[in-house]
């Protein structure tokens, strides 16, 4: 059997993590290609539906990444995101989703190295967990 390579969707804030991803790129910090970015204006914009949709339609993991507490470009969107992720975690883990499949991190605009490390760590974690069962369910 071929080695499993996970697919991870990352909803990232334009002002911090997306910028950090740019920075990581400029600094040529090699990352796993298995994580793909969806640019949001703020983590506070990430509707729980987006996470559920991603997990049902093939993502093995979802990363949400925004500004550090106190640094949110929109004052407090990241705090709202944190509550929504908390809620989703409570729901999803009850159905056997490993909580490592949904991750919230704070990566500031200057933290290119932290972004690259986050990507590689998460890909590594999910690779170890194996494919998401939800992705294989033949229903949406």
């Amino acid at each position: 059997m071929e080695a499993f390579e996970p697919t991870i969707i990352a909803f990232v804030c334009n002002w911090c993590t997306y910028t950090a991803a740019d920075l990581a790129g400029t600094a040529r910090m090699v990352q796993s290609p298995r994580l793909r970015l969806v640019r949001m204006m703020c983590t506070g914009m990430v509707d729980p539906k987006y996470v559920i949709k991603a997990l049902l339609s093939g993502a093995d993991g979802v990363l949400i990444s925004g500004c550090h507490p106190g640094d949110c470009h929109y004052i407090n969107g990241n705090y709202k995101a944190r509550r929504r992720v908390k809620l989703l975690n409570e729901i999803l883990t009850g159905f056997g989703f490993d909580e490592r499949r949904l991750k919230l991190t704070w990566v500031g605009a200057s933290e290119g190295n932290e972004f690259a490390a986050t990507v590689n760590r998460m890909v590594e974690d999910i690779r170890a967990l194996g494919p998401s069962e939800a992705a294989a369910v033949q229903a949406l």
């Binding site: 969806v38 204006m41 506070g44 914009m45 929109y74 407090n76 969107g77 709202k80 929504r84």
Partner: peptide, 29 residues
């Protein structure tokens, strides 16, 4: 300011951020 705190919560999807509509995000996914 278009931060989407409203859209990220609104259960009926009445609140949407223009250019970041649910449909566009879903299809992007």
């Amino acid at each position: 300011k278009g931060c989407g705190s409203c859209a990220g919560h609104c259960p009926s999807g009445a609140a949407q951020i223009r250019h970041f509509s649910e449909r566009s995000i879903f299809t992007e996914l």
